[in-house]
């Protein structure tokens, strides 16, 4: 199986390393920045292509690790060429795009696998497994936290900082936990969110709080932020059910903590949480996708799941904008 990688940034490099753990071959690399693609291709023994169109005839699977605003066109091009697709999260910026992408892949009969990597983090996967098995009864209240510093903060021109290209923090980052909340507790009926960026335009960081109400009656609190001093990055989950409680991380901090921007280091690009594991979650994810592509597994996350997570994020953004609680299905474009 020949893999063609689009994008040689942090995620592209991470996926390339993960593909090395599978029998698949990284055959081609396309990238916006020449230098990055060359280095990555040289390492993997892959060919550098100037465009996706030039690479398509030479690969079986296209792995899209580009900025979000490029996903839709690249997925449509790969589907038209009959190639299976792996696409980084968030799937797209709009529901119009996610619908077109899913329709194109269905019509072409190709996989569209969305890299919602949190589903492959062992602590998140283990908690979901316990909940699905009924270990803690019916889920009532869930709390999810994902906060770090601003990605690519040395580069104000980065696509991360352009909501038209990234969808902003509430889509780019919080989509992880919106997807996880839905995986855990089912469909979301209503979203209420508050976002500090429009309220404090002078704030250096970006931060939002959202409350989800699921059709099951469960409620979920989601905290997301690019607001911490470098290099602090924290994720947390807490799931309270009628017959038990799951907490991560186990409580182990001091009664107060003060983390100031003034003390921060300066040479970090984007935080990828590090944890000492025999296999990193990105590799687990890519190996799973390899198994799906070779007919050995059903996908843990479908294109529909990827689209539903985007829809919750867009509803949260709409709620923060209007000050009203929003039903995700109201977001159609």
């Amino acid at each position: 199986m020949k893999i063609g990688l689009v994008g040689a940034g942090l995620m592209g490099r991470t996926h390339a390393a993960a593909w090395a753990a599978t029998p698949a071959t990284l055959a081609g690399v396309v990238a916006l920045e020449d230098g990055a693609a060359q280095a990555l291709a040289a390492q993997a023994g892959a060919v550098v292509y100037p465009t996706l169109a030039a690479m398509l005839p030479h690969v079986d699977v296209v792995d899209i690790c580009t900025p979000t605003y490029l996903h839709a066109a690249q997925v449509l091009a790969a589907a038209a060429a009959g190639k299976h697709i792996i696409c980084e999260k968030p799937l797209a910026l709009t529901m119009t795009d996610t619908a077109a992408m899913i329709a194109a892949c269905e019509q072409a009969g190709v996989w569209l696998l969305v890299a919602q990597v949190v589903r492959f983090f062992p602590e998140y996967a283990a908690a979901r497994h316990m909940v699905a098995r009924g270990d803690i009864g019916t889920v009532a209240v869930t709390r999810l936290t994902r906060c770090g510093f601003k990605p690519a903060r040395q580069n104000p021109q980065s696509w991360f900082h352009n909501p038209a290209q990234s969808g902003g923090m509430m889509l780019d980052l919080m989509v992880h936990d919106f997807d996880y909340a839905r995986w855990l507790c089912g469909e979301v009926e209503s979203v209420y969110a508050r976002h500090i960026a429009p309220r404090f335009p002078q704030a250096a960081g970006d931060y939002a709080l959202a409350i989800l109400r699921h059709t099951s009656g469960a409620i979920t609190h989601v905290e997301g932020g690019w607001a911490y001093p470098v290099p602090l990055f924290r994720t947390a989950l807490e799931i309270a059910g009628s017959a038990g409680l799951i907490e991560h991380p186990a409580a182990s901090s001091a009664p107060i903590g003060v983390y100031l921007h003034a003390t921060e280091a300066t040479d970090v690009e984007t935080a990828v949480p590090a944890s000492p594991l025999a296999e990193d979650p990105y590799t687990t994810e890519i190996r799973h996708f390899y198994d799906v592509l070779t007919g050995r597994a059903a996908p843990r996350v479908t294109a529909h799941d990827g689209a539903a997570a985007v829809q919750i994020a867009l509803a949260a953004i709409e709620s923060a904008r209007t000050g009203r609680a929003v039903r995700p299905q109201e977001v159609t474009a």
Binding site: A203, A251, I256, H261
Partner: peptide
């Protein structure tokens, strides 16, 4: 409580001791 402030992050746990 966790506070997101202009100068950084502050965490407080009243019953951590």
């Amino acid at each position: 409580l966790d506070l997101i402030t202009e100068k950084g992050l502050v965490t407080v746990d009243a019953f951590k001791q």
